[in-house]
Design a protein around this nucleic acid. Structure first.
Lengths: 222, 222
DNA sequence: CCGTGACTTTGCGGAATCGCAAAGACGGCA
DNA sequence: TGCCGTCTTTGCGATTCCGCAAAGTCACGG
């Protein structure tokens, strides 16, 4: 039943290839397309007027991106860049009214997706406001592992290159604090890593930290 | 042209009265209705499992609330309570598909509203992550004044009772820090206040703080 | 195989902010 | 009018977290 619809909807899209570090769009660009990521990983970030940068989210295969902007806003409020070679489908936003009218379920799906984005955004605000950095970082890593984790011998590796700086901008901390925490966790066997690389060695204990139990004997220093 | 539509849509709603401190709905309730606030002011807040509370936003007359939840989610992720006696219109969420199909512009409006909520939420995250408390507080007050300010002799008063604690939960600070900053601003003639009451005496200078210039000679202490 | 630039780590203060404790101040209600 | 609970203020540390500086470390291109 759905396959006819699906084919028809796919007809309207064109596919786009983003080499590593290429931009899908930039903050302030006119929002002419809505996308679905087929393969790869993208980073959505927002820059403040004062030059600070915040990572809004990482986009994984199967995710929709640019939708809210294309459907409801005029311009993209974020910049989206490929962190590995990626492939996406793009629909011109002008075809949306027709598609939505023809396939009501599509509209419902998009609405739900936006709803969950909103919920995520608010959850993040709540965490930023009520939890300390260590916990936020643990949560951030678990989330990344969950959406882009690859099983790797003794643990889960985040399946795309990510700098400490990126993690900091995603979790609401500084580069230095993230580096210190990861070092400390590495010494305890919770994580492992390297240049643009993070492996969760003991997700269970990380979850413990994320949920409140302080990393025993962390002491922040030493 | 629109008035017929409007009448027809209004037909489907029922009005509800919320006395001060009454709940429109609570976190976890099944999302059966979507609302428009006609009169009054509501506070939407979210509680964490650990007991902390965060104010998501204040709802003013004309605002839609509960929409995302009713249209896309199953349950309300926030609690909404009246801070003054309020009146709202409520639509059962099940009439939505029919309304949306009949009045496409309605769907577009709702989508745009949700889009701007998402943008707000992300902007807040960015601010929480990149700006210091003083600036965030100034922004928060200006926003409140903007959406619910009443001109008052020598300044703009926030037109509903709001505790320091609420401001803290809205701006991402603690009760103590908010109180200290407001005291300091009051000494400089930027604001005035009292029990559950805040008046912006000099919005222009507040804007200066919100945009970066540090309140001269603040010194944090004293 | 080496040089170079990007990324990471860590020491060392320093600043921002928290948060207890305790004292006021206010306002509604009996 | 007086009491009481709620809200606010402020002193005083205590913490958390930041952020410069400088020294690694790593990956890649030539």
């Amino acid at each position: 039943m759905a396959s006819d619809n699906l084919d028809a909807v796919l007809e309207e899209a064109r596919s786009v290839l983003y080499p590593r570090d290429a931009y899908a769009f930039k903050q302030g660009d006119e929002a002419k397309f809505l996308f679905v990521l087929l393969r790869g990983h993208l980073r959505a970030e927002q820059n403040t007027s004062s030059g600070a940068k915040v990572v809004i989210r990482y986009v994984s295969a199967g995710d929709v991106f640019g939708a809210v902007e294309a459907l409801a806003l005029k311009r993209y409020p974020t910049t989206v860049a490929a962190v590995v070679n990626s492939v996406a489908l793009a629909w011109p936003s002008r075809v949306w009214p027709r598609l939505a009218a023809t396939y009501p379920k599509l509209a419902i799906n998009i609405l739900q997706m936006i709803g969950s984005l909103l919920q995520d955004a608010r959850l993040r605000t709540v965490e930023m406001q009520t939890e300390e950095v260590e916990r936020r970082l643990a949560r951030t890593l678990l989330r990344l592992a969950n959406q882009a984790g690859r099983k790797e011998g003794r643990g889960i590796e985040i399946d795309f290159p990510i700098r400490r700086q990126d993690v900091a901008e995603l979790s609401g901390a500084t580069l230095y604090t993230v580096s210190r925490l990861l070092s400390s966790w590495e010494r305890k066997g919770l994580t492992a890593g390297g240049r643009q690389r993070i492996v969760l060695r003991d997700p269970h204990r990380l979850l413990g930290i994320a949920e409140g139990r302080r990393a025993s004997a962390t002491s922040g220093h030493r």
